[in-house]
Design a protein around this nucleic acid. Structure first.
Lengths: 184, 184
DNA sequence: CTATACATGTAACTAGTTACATGATTTA
DNA sequence: TAAATCATGTAACTAGTTACATGTATAG
């Protein structure tokens, strides 16, 4: 998979400029697909060349001109093709797990601190997601179509943050027990 | 973070050749840090230049010669430094979530099939991990030091696969309900 | 007068993927 | 005789990160 397809999904939900897209990637879409503005501008350029999106320059008063991107017929076809295409399992790369595995090769306390930091970050993120859930989807259970799909992706975020917090807690508890055992 | 540090951890657990390392990355270490043999050979070369590992050519009879890599003092120092260094949250990139979010822009059934496929793959992986847990860590709860750390990383794998399976089930149930609702 | 939002980009670099290349030994 | 295991790599490409560059308008 590639950023192209995430952009096609984002742009089909709502057309917009590279800047607007970058802001959306910093929030809702970025919760499951990270991308910087540099990457987005570069990719949009390529997508225009591929004919997947159309551009239109929009002159604005009071603020700089912008280019509004829209998904073309070819882009819609490509998106449909990609949605139907099976893809392999995503490569896992978990820094924190590497640190935990190597903890005893350095100062174990340092690694525990890292785990605690990550725990707090994931807990904060979990709170944010839950707030969004309550605010934007109080009617969960009766959702259909695109709204349902948006909700389900939010659920992925909630579940994975919860999972991360619980694992960090398990690690901290076990490592604290081990520390006490080796001292006492 | 980079592959370098995952290699330092792997090599400090046990010295070995690039080939041996690549095989370990296909199994235990690869469960939380994916790396191909090409990447590993390239990175080992760079690590020798940096002085983080030492190489020794080993002549073998019946099979090709190999180069055995060992972590040097400088490598151990670098690993300690990295273990203590705080790092930012890892960038999330979840293809399947993008597909779910875009499901209604193509054939919804196609996306449901993808989710079902992923569900099965995660369930299989979960079974593998649980088998390893029972076989290699029947004494969990009394583990200490490096063995404990290895176990905790396995726990991360178990938790995240479980989490993935549950989310896929939630998605499939909700999408089936929606499908029936729109038909009936 | 300072920071933030709006708006677009380039350049250089680092990391990861895919395809290709070679060649011996052992097992089915 | 075909495939798998052992063993090491190169080359070309794709994707992602970091740093730099520019300029206006508005809110505090």
């Amino acid at each position: 998979m590639a950023l192209e397809h995430a952009i096609l999904v984002a742009l089909q939900e709502k057309s917009g400029s590279g800047y607007e897209l970058a802001r959306r990637f910093d929030r809702s879409i970025g919760y499951f697909w990270a991308a910087s503005h540099q990457q987005i501008y570069r990719t949009l350029k390529r997508m225009v060349e591929l004919g997947w999106v159309d551009v239109q320059a929009v002159v604005q008063q009071g603020r700089p001109d912008k280019k509004v991107y829209r998904v073309s017929d070819a882009g819609r076809a490509e998106l449909r093709r990609w949605l139907a295409e099976p893809d392999g399992p995503a490569a896992v790369r978990n820094d924190l797990a590497v640190k935990v595995r190597g903890a005893s090769m350095g100062d174990v306390r340092d690694v525990m601190e890292q785990v605690a930091r990550h725990r707090d970050r994931h807990a904060e993120r979990l709170d944010e997601y839950r707030a969004i859930e309550q605010r934007d989807f109080p009617d969960a259970g009766r959702l259909t179509g695109q709204r349902l799909h948006q909700y389900l992706v939010l659920r992925a975020g909630i579940r994975s943050e919860q999972c991360a917090v619980e694992w960090c807690d398990e690690v901290l508890e076990a490592m604290r027990r081990d520390e006490e055992g080796s001292r006492g």
